[in-house]
Design a protein around this nucleic acid. Structure first.
Length: 585
RNA sequence: GCCCCGGUGGCGCAACGGAAGCGCAGUCGAUUUGUAAUCGACAGGUUAGGGGUUCGACUCCCCUCUGGGGCUCCA
C-alpha cells in the first residue's frame, strides 16, 4: 500500500537557531503592523517555519499585494526603531483579560495545560502570547520580505474559519535574503510544468481531465529510457516482472480491505454484466494473486514481483499539481514474499538497488527515516518487532544514518522512507520500503515450510521511484530540463550550414544512429545561428555543425550544450566521447 | 472540498462597458548562411462553457468547468 508521497519541506535544512528566532520576531513585527492597519483583525498564530514565517489573521477582506507593501513598510519602521523584545510571565486570568478581544488567542489559552507557564512577548506597544524565544531587539532583523498571501484554516481544520495567512521571510543579511529569493526564482525557472511544455515532454488537457497526463514523443522517449533502465536493473537484481489489469472485481478489493479503508481514494465502480469492478488504486492484490496461483515452497522464496503498475486514485482537485500530484500514475511497485530468515538480506537488497538507481539519476544526498508501530495496528507485535529490527539492521549494516519516526508506520507494518535532495536542495520522498502484516493475513498467504507445515510469508512492498510521473517531474526540475546524455530524448542535432550539406548531415546522422545514438538533422532553410539557438533552448546535449570543411574531412564540428564550441572532430572520436560520457551516466 | 487570484489564436501577453491587438510558434516566398534569433507576406480567436444586466459585455452579476497559490511547520 504505497503512497506516492509529497514534497516534504520539513527536511530541507536544519533550521538555524538565529534565523528561527529572527523570523519568529519578524512574525510579531508583522502582526504589529497588520493590527495598526487593520485594527479589527483577529490574530491566529504566527510561527517561524523552515524558510521564513507566517501569521494568520481573521480579517473582513483578504490582503492585497498593496496591503503587503504597506505592512512591509511599517515593519521596516519598527525594525529601524530598535524596540526591545521583552518576555513576561503572566497568569491565566491576566492573559485572558489582555487578549479579551482576540478569540483565537483565548482558544489557545484555554487549550494549554494548567501547569504550563504562560508567557507574553512585548515590543513597542505590541504584545503577543508566545513562548519565544525572540531576538533581543527589533533592530536585529537585517533583511525581511513578505512573500505571499493565502487562505488557511484555523488550526488546519476545514470545518473551522478560514484565516488569511501572510508568508514572509527574514535573513541575517540582505545577501542571504537575496540568495534565498534567487533560489525561489531558480525553482520557478525550473518548473517542470513550464519545461514540460517547452521541451515537448507532456501535457494535460481539459478534454481528458485534470490530473491525467499525456506524454509527447520526447517525454515518451525519456520515459521509455527510464523504464528500460528500470526493467534491466530489476531483472539483474533477481526480480520477476508482472503485468496486471487496470480493473478488478469488487470482491478482490473487499478481501484486500481497500473498499473498507481506501474507498475515498477510489473511483466509482464500473458495471460489467451486473458485476462491480473497480479501477485499481494499488497493485498489491494482483501480485498476491500471482503468489497464490500455486502452492509455494520455502525453496522458491524469496519471490520478488515487480511491475510498472498504473494506478488511479482520487485526489482532491485542490491538490493536483503538474506531474507531482496526479490522478493516474505508474508506480514502480514490487512485492517481496520471503521467509523470516530472508528478511534482513531482502531489505538490504532493496537498499542496495535503491542507491544504485538514485545515483544513476544524479541523486547523492538522502535523508532516511524508519517508522515504527502506530497505536492502531494490525499484526502480531512479535512480527512488528522482528520486521522493525530487520529494517534497522539493514540500515545500520550499511552505516546509514536515519531518523526514527516512532509510531509513524502504516497500520499494517513498519517502513523505511528515503528522501532525496535535488539540485536546489529541496527534499522529495520517493523510495519507501514497507512491511505488510495485513494482506498476507487477509489473503491467507502461506508456503510449505521445511518442516512440512504451512507458514505465512513476510510481505514487503517497495517502490524506488515512487511514481514514474512524479519522478520525472523531479528529474526535470533537478536537471532544469537539461537531461544528461543517457536520458536526453535527442542526444545530438546535426546542423547543416547550407542546403548542400544536408546530404552529408544525413550520413552523420545514420552513422551515429547505427552506433546507438538518438540524433536528428535540422534541415530547415534557416541560418546556422538559429538552429543552434533552437537546439540550445531544447537543451540538446550536442550540436554537430557540418559545412564544407567537415564534409571534406568526414568530420563534425562539435558544440556542447554547456561547454560550447569544442572544434572539429572525426566521427569516430565523437562516438568515443559520447560512449565515454554514457559509461559515467 | 474550502479561501483568494486567474482562464483572450498552439504558447506568452494587451484591450475604460463603445471596431479583439502584439510577440513567439505556424504556412508561403526570398535568402544558402561558420557557433544563441535573416527578411517579407499570409493565415490563425463564437474572448473556457452556460445564463443574466445593458442600446451595447473580453470587461459587470450568477452558475459550471478548469489553472495557480495555499489550507499538516502550531502560544
Amino acid at each position: 500500500m504505497l503512497d506516492h508521497g509529497t514534497l516534504d519541506t520539513g527536511h530541507v535544512n536544519p533550521v538555524d537557531a538565529l534565523r528561527h528566532r529572527m523570523r519568529h520576531s519578524a512574525a510579531h513585527i508583522m502582526a504589529d503592523a497588520v493590527l495598526k492597519l487593520f485594527p479589527e483583525a483577529k490574530m491566529g498564530i504566527g510561527p517561524p517555519i523552515h524558510d521564513g514565517f507566517y501569521y494568520d489573521f481573521d480579517v473582513s477582506r483578504p490582503f492585497t499585494p498593496e496591503d503587503l507593501e504597506r505592512i512591509e513598510e511599517l515593519m521596516n519602521e519598527t525594525i529601524s526603531a530598535s524596540h526591545s523584545f521583552l518576555r513576561e510571565e503572566i497568569s491565566r486570568e491576566d492573559a485572558k483579560e489582555l487578549f479579551a478581544g482576540q478569540p483565537y488567542k483565548l482558544e489557545i489559552i484555554d487549550g494549554l495545560a494548567d501547569e504550563e507557564t504562560l508567557t507574553i512577548y512585548r515590543h513597542s506597544d505590541f504584545v503577543d502570547l508566545c513562548q519565544g524565544p525572540h531576538i533581543d531587539n527589533s533592530g536585529d532583523i537585517p533583511a525581511v520580505k513578505l512573500l505571499s498571501v493565502a487562505g488557511a484554516y484555523w488550526r488546519g481544520d476545514e470545518r473551522r474559519p478560514m484565516l488569511q495567512r501572510i508568508y514572509g521571510t527574514a535573513f541575517e543579511s540582505t545577501e542571504a535574503l537575496a540568495d534565498h529569493l534567487a533560489r525561489l526564482e531558480e525553482a520557478e525557472r525550473r518548473d517542470h510544468r513550464v519545461l514540460g511544455r517547452q521541451l515537448g515532454l507532456f501535457s494535460i488537457h481539459d478534454e481528458i481531465g485534470p490530473g491525467l497526463i499525456v506524454w509527447h514523443p520526447k517525454g515518451g522517449r525519456v520515459r521509455t529510457i527510464i523504464e528500460d533502465y528500470w526493467r534491466d536493473l530489476h531483472y539483474r537484481r533477481g526480480y520477476d516482472i508482472l503485468y496486471s489489469p487496470h480493473i478488478g472485481r469488487a470482491q478482490l478489493w473487499e478481501t484486500s480491505g481497500h473498499l473498507d479503508f481506501y474507498r475515498e481514494n477510489m473511483y466509482a465502480p464500473i458495471d460489467v454484466d451486473d458485476q462491480e469492478y473497480f479501477l485499481k488504486p494499488m497493485n498489491c492484490p494482483f501480485h498476491i494473486m500471482v503468489y497464490r496461483s500455486s502452492l509455494r515452497s520455502y525453496r522458491e522464496l524469496p519471490l520478488r514481483y515487480a511491475e510498472l503498475g498504473t494506478v488511479y486514485r482520487y485526489e482532491r482537485s485542490g491538490v493536483l499539481h503538474g506531474l507531482m500530484r496526479v490522478r493516474g500514475f505508474t508506480q514502480d511497485d514490487a512485492h517481496i514474499f520471503c521467509r523470516p530468515d530472508q528478511v534482513v538480506s531482502e531489505v538490504d537488497g532493496v537498499l542496495d538497488l535503491t542507491f544504485e538507481l538514485l545515483k544513476d539519476f544524479g541523486f547523492t544526498d538522502y535523508s532516511i527515516s524508519l517508522s515504527t508501530r502506530p497505536e492502531k495496528a494490525v499484526g502480531d507485535p512479535e512480527l512488528w518487532d522482528h520486521a522493525t529490527a530487520s529494517l534497522r539492521q539493514a540500515l545500520e549494516g550499511r552505516n546509514l544514518s536515519f531518523d526514527m519516526d516512532e509510531g509513524g508506520g502504516a497500520f499494517y507494518g513498519p517502513k523505511i522512507d528515503i528522501h532525496i535532495t535535488d539540485a536546489l536542495g529541496r527534499s522529495w520522498q520517493c523510495t519507501t520500503v514497507q512491511f505488510d502484516f495485513n494482506l498476507p493475513e487477509r489473503f491467507d498467504l502461506v508456503y510449505q515450510d521445511s518442516e512440512g507445515g504451512r507458514s505465512r510469508p513476510y510481505m514487503v512492498h517497495r517502490a524506488i521511484l515512487g511514481s514514474v510521473e512524479r519522478f520525472m517531474g523531479i528529474l526535470i526540475e533537478h536537471y532544469a530540463g537539461a537531461f544528461p546524455l543517457w536520458l536526453a530524448p535527442v542526444q545530438a542535432v546535426v546542423i547543416p550550414i547550407a542546403d548542400r550539406h544536408i546530404e552529408y548531415a544525413e550520413v552523420v546522422k545514420t552513422g551515429l544512429a547505427e552506433a546507438g545514438f538518438r540524433v536528428e538533422v535540422d534541415g530547415r532553410s534557416e541560418r546556422m545561428n538559429l538552429k543552434i539557438r533552437n537546439a540550445q533552448m531544447q537543451k540538446v546535449p550536442y550540436m554537430l555543425v557540418v559545412g564544407d570543411r567537415e564534409q571534406e574531412d568526414s568530420a563534425v564540428s562539435v558544440r556542447h550544450r554547456e561547454e560550447g564550441d569544442l572544434g572539429g572532430m572525426a566521427l569516430e572520436a565523437l562516438v568515443e566521447r559520447l560512449n565515454g560520457e554514457l559509461a559515467r551516466k
